[in-house]
Simulated scan of single mutants.
Amino acid sequence: MIAFRFGGSAAADESPGVKDVTPISLAGRWTGSYYGYGRSRDGQDCGDSGCRMMFDIVACKDGWCGIAVKTDKSCGAVGLHLAADAKAGEKVFDGQLELAKGAAPYVVQAWHNTDKETGITEMHFVGDTGTKLLMIRRSYPFEATLTRAGDATCTLDKATS
Rank of each mutant, 00 (worst) to 15 (best):
S49M: 05
S49R: 12
S33W: 03
A27C: 01
M53Q: 11
A11V: 00
Y35F: 08
R41N: 12
E14G: 15
A59W: 03
D42G: 13
D45V: 00
S40L: 02
G8E: 02
D45F: 10
V69G: 06
D62V: 11
G66L: 07
D48R: 09
Y35D: 01
P23Y: 12
I24F: 09
G17A: 15
G28R: 05
T31R: 10
G63S: 04
P23N: 11
A59G: 07
G32W: 04
Y34M: 02
C46K: 01
R41E: 00
G7Y: 13
V58A: 05
V69M: 00
G36V: 06
G47W: 02
T31A: 00
P16R: 10
W30A: 06
T31Y: 01
R52Y: 11
F55A: 00
G32E: 01
R39F: 08
G50W: 03
W30F: 06
M54R: 15
M53T: 04
D13C: 00
I67C: 04
G17R: 15
M53D: 04
M54H: 09
T22C: 10
G32R: 00
Y34S: 03
G63R: 05
V21D: 13
S25K: 12
S25C: 04
I67R: 06
E14V: 14
K70Y: 14
C46Y: 03
A12W: 00
S25Y: 12
G28C: 05
D20L: 14
K70W: 06
W30E: 10
R41C: 07
G17H: 15
A11C: 07
P16I: 04
G38S: 03
G66C: 04
G17T: 15
L26D: 06
C46G: 02
A10T: 13
M54L: 13
D62T: 08
S9I: 10
V69P: 10
G43Q: 04
S40W: 05
V21K: 12
T22I: 09
C46A: 02
S15E: 00
D48W: 07
D48G: 11
A59F: 05
K70T: 13
G47L: 06
K70G: 10
D48F: 08
T31S: 10
D56K: 07
C51S: 05
G36S: 08
Y35N: 01
C60S: 13
G32I: 01
Y35L: 03
